[in-house]
Amino acid sequence: DESNKPILLPNESQSFERSVQLLDQIPSYDTHKIAVLYVGEGQSNSELAILSNEHGSYRYTEFLTGLGRLIELKDCQPDKVYLGGLDVCGEDGQFTYCWHDDIMQAVFHIATLMPTKDVDKHRCDKKRHLGNDFVSIVYNDSGEDFKLGTIKGQFNFVHVIVTPLDYECNLVSLQCRKDMEGLVDTSVAKIVSDRNLPFVARQMALHANMASQVHHSRSNPTDIYPSKWIARLRHIKRLRQRICEEAAYSNPSLPLVHPPSHSKAPAQTPAEPTPGYEVGQRKRLISSVEDFTE
């Protein structure tokens, strides 16, 4: 099969070098950035008060330690540790928490760990991170309901609301924008112990962030949302095809390698009803078989 044979790379090609550099910018793992907010007593309706908090309760602090690993920003190499735009020179604080497994990295933009500057009256330095995160974990210690939209931002799609209760338990629920209701189930609340709260809140936030990324990708319907490693695979396959075309153009005697095509017509299947918005969006999480067989 010609399409699977190794090909020689061009010795000097600026377009090839640019493509390789672009490939280096696509990590081999999925990345997520999640905002974390603490809401104190009497702050449920005040964005400024929430963003001005420099610490929270003892249970909130224990919750943070379970979310991930504490890292010092100045020691991080952005090409190895995903920071979601946090500055490593102290502009966004000294520490944050991050978490990773074999296929993804997540960083938490924690408002109480970011510096509260006197010259920044409206807390814009914090909002440029927190307001651009799709998902926020809100530790609501106010005793009042927290409403979506209290923290203004164009991309605040989903809130994971943590409400501490007695007996070391917590109520965990989801809020989302109306255009996200087909992807996020907000109907079920959970009672979770303090011990298990970081794991549950983190998983709910990661799932909500993946759904938000799919939702946000609708602005470019021709580019369905893939995982990062599938995006790398697609980029490599496009690069291979372009090299083959350039080689055939410079030397017409060489065969032009095309991806294999299936001449056999697909079997006719009964027509199915058109899937609704929710089903269609969830299918976009699934990769096409052509990603692996071309």
Rank of each mutant, 00 (worst) to 15 (best):
Thr116Val: 08
His159Ser: 15
Pro6Trp: 05
Leu37Cys: 03
Gly42Pro: 01
Lys237Ser: 07
Ser219Thr: 09
Arg282Ile: 08
Lys190Met: 15
His129Thr: 12
Leu51Ile: 06
Ser187Leu: 03
Asp75Ala: 12
Gly90Asp: 09
Ala247Ile: 11
Ile230Asn: 12
Cys89Met: 10
Leu183Met: 13
Lys264Ala: 14
Met114Gln: 05
Tyr277Lys: 15
Tyr225Ala: 11
Gln94Ser: 08
Glu294Pro: 14
Ser173Thr: 08
Cys124Ser: 14
Ala231Thr: 13
Tyr97Val: 12
Arg177Lys: 10
Pro260Leu: 12
His215Asn: 05
Val138Ile: 07
Ser142Thr: 02
Val200His: 02
Gly84Gln: 11
Gln281Arg: 12
Leu239Ser: 08
His109Ser: 03
Asn156Asp: 08
Asp141Ser: 01
Leu256Gln: 15
Val20Cys: 11
Ala205Leu: 01
Gln154Asn: 12
Ser44Arg: 03
Thr293Ala: 10
Pro6Phe: 05
Thr222Ser: 11
Thr65Glu: 12
Arg218Phe: 07
Ala271Lys: 10
Lys178Ser: 13
Ile110Leu: 02
Ser217Gln: 09
Val172Gln: 02
Ala189His: 12
Lys147Ile: 07
Ile137Phe: 01
Pro260Trp: 10
Pro115Lys: 07
Gln105His: 13
Arg18Cys: 08
Ser263Arg: 09
Gly66Pro: 00
Ser173Gly: 08
Gly56Cys: 02
His55Cys: 12
Ile243Gln: 05
Val107Met: 05
Gly131His: 15
Cys76His: 14
Tyr225Glu: 14
Val36Met: 01
Leu239Asn: 10
Arg202Tyr: 02
Glu246Phe: 05
Ala248Thr: 11
Thr186Ile: 06
Met180Arg: 02
Asp101Trp: 00
His55Thr: 09
Cys89Ser: 13
Asp223Arg: 07
Lys5Asn: 14
Val81Tyr: 15
Lys126Pro: 05
Gln154Asp: 13
Ala106Leu: 12
Gln203Pro: 01
Ser173Asp: 04
Val192Ser: 01
Val36Asp: 00
Leu130Arg: 03
Leu9Thr: 14
Ser187Trp: 02
Asp1Met: 14
Ser142Met: 01
Ile50Lys: 02
Pro6Asn: 09
Gly153Lys: 04
Val158Tyr: 03
Thr150Pro: 03
Pro27Arg: 05
Ser3Pro: 12
His109Trp: 03
Ser46Tyr: 03
Leu64Glu: 01
Tyr58Ser: 06
Ser173Leu: 04
Ser187Pro: 06
Leu51Ala: 02
Thr186His: 07
Met180Cys: 12
Leu171Ala: 05
Lys264Thr: 15
Ser13Leu: 10
Val39Lys: 01
His216Asn: 05
Ser217Thr: 11
Ile137Val: 03
Ile110Ser: 03
Gly84Leu: 04
Ile161Ser: 02
His235Pro: 05
Glu72Met: 07
Leu174Lys: 02
Leu254Glu: 15
Lys80Arg: 08
Thr116Leu: 11
Gln94Glu: 10
Thr163Cys: 06
Val172Leu: 06
Asp75Ile: 05
Thr274Lys: 08
Ser217Gly: 05
Asp125Glu: 08
Leu239Val: 06
Lys80Leu: 04
Leu83Asp: 15
Glu41Val: 06
Ser173Val: 08
Gln94Trp: 08
Asn156Glu: 04
Gly66Gln: 03
Tyr277Gly: 15
Tyr225Trp: 08
Ala271Gln: 11
Glu62Ser: 07
Glu278Phe: 06
Gln203Glu: 13
Pro27Asp: 14
Lys74Gly: 07
Leu183Thr: 04
Tyr38Leu: 00
